[in-house]
Amino acid sequence: MAKVTIDGHMIEVPDGTTILQAARMIGGDVVPPAMCYYSKLKTSGGYCRTCLVKVTKGSEKDPRPMPKPVASCRTPVMDGMEVQNKTAPDLLEARAGVVEFLLINHPLDCPICDQAGECSLQDLAYEHGLSRTRYEFSRRTFQKIDIGEKIKLHMTRCILCYRCVKVAEQITDGRVHGVLNRGDVSEISTYISQAVDNDFSGNMIDVCPVGALTDRTFRFKSRVWNVNPVDAHRDCPTCSGRVMLWMKGAEVFRVTARKDEYAEVLDTPDGKPGWICNTCRFDKKETKDWIVDGPSKIDRHSVISQNHYVLQEPAHKPLLNAVQAVPTSWQLENKK
């Protein structure tokens, strides 16, 4: 066991626990945001850098602070470690920087995005970002593609969290999509047009933190806050059959896995991750297919469900005033 203190809260956790997991055990404000880590996917995390924390004391044995902020999702705790998340202003500033990086090439098309209202990036930007952009160049764009009959890939929105690749690797049999190219032109793709077809491929939609992978059977049907989630189950030969139905009146608009407060799929009672199969997700769209358990308890921390419409300025002051936008030949060239 190891004792770790995060923002002044002490907790004792098993060896090998990461700082992020320890913070989640404490709960509340001390939990750093995580855009790429997904506790149910092995080797996930480390990429997005939103979960950075400051380690002010390495351990009881070696109390030196760590020289740089570390990714809490991939750093194991040490006995006696002391960590700052919300209590370190310089860390919050660094995190705001990460959020800005994630947003500069994001299309900010929330008004037409199916994920709006349950988008981790929207929440993150709201809680940790600036209220304006300092980026004045044309944004990166990609063609939208259908990967299979039921899934839409809108790469322009992707933040390269690698979660969907890990789903394909770890819970489907045979990965046909992956990350191509490198640097800021990296993209999720099948390379040559290929359907991602597999009983469990739909779970890629559930793990996607943004609106890059969406359910084609639900596309543009409704805003998520206009449909009501209810827990339901069916006897499914392929998966646990435990789902959330998103309903308007008696109509089932979409089916997803049940999720916890970190937007991860909930475990089933036997302790396994509650991934659902494509039949449950895409084909069972009638109430008669399901036995309803009651309204879902979902964590309504997302921007829109909280009616947080008032903009709050971040605690730290942005360095610059809005600078004048001048079209450069760079942008002009990009328009061609």
Partner: peptide, 25 residues
């Protein structure tokens, strides 16, 4: 550096290109 970033982590993937564009401007 923009050309050689592997693209895994957001600060390097996005920041290197941004700096290049500003210098270009």
């Amino acid at each position: 550096y923009h050309h050689e970033s592997c693209g895994q982590c957001s600060p390097c993937r996005e920041g290197t290109g941004w700096m290049e564009k500003i210098l270009h401007r």
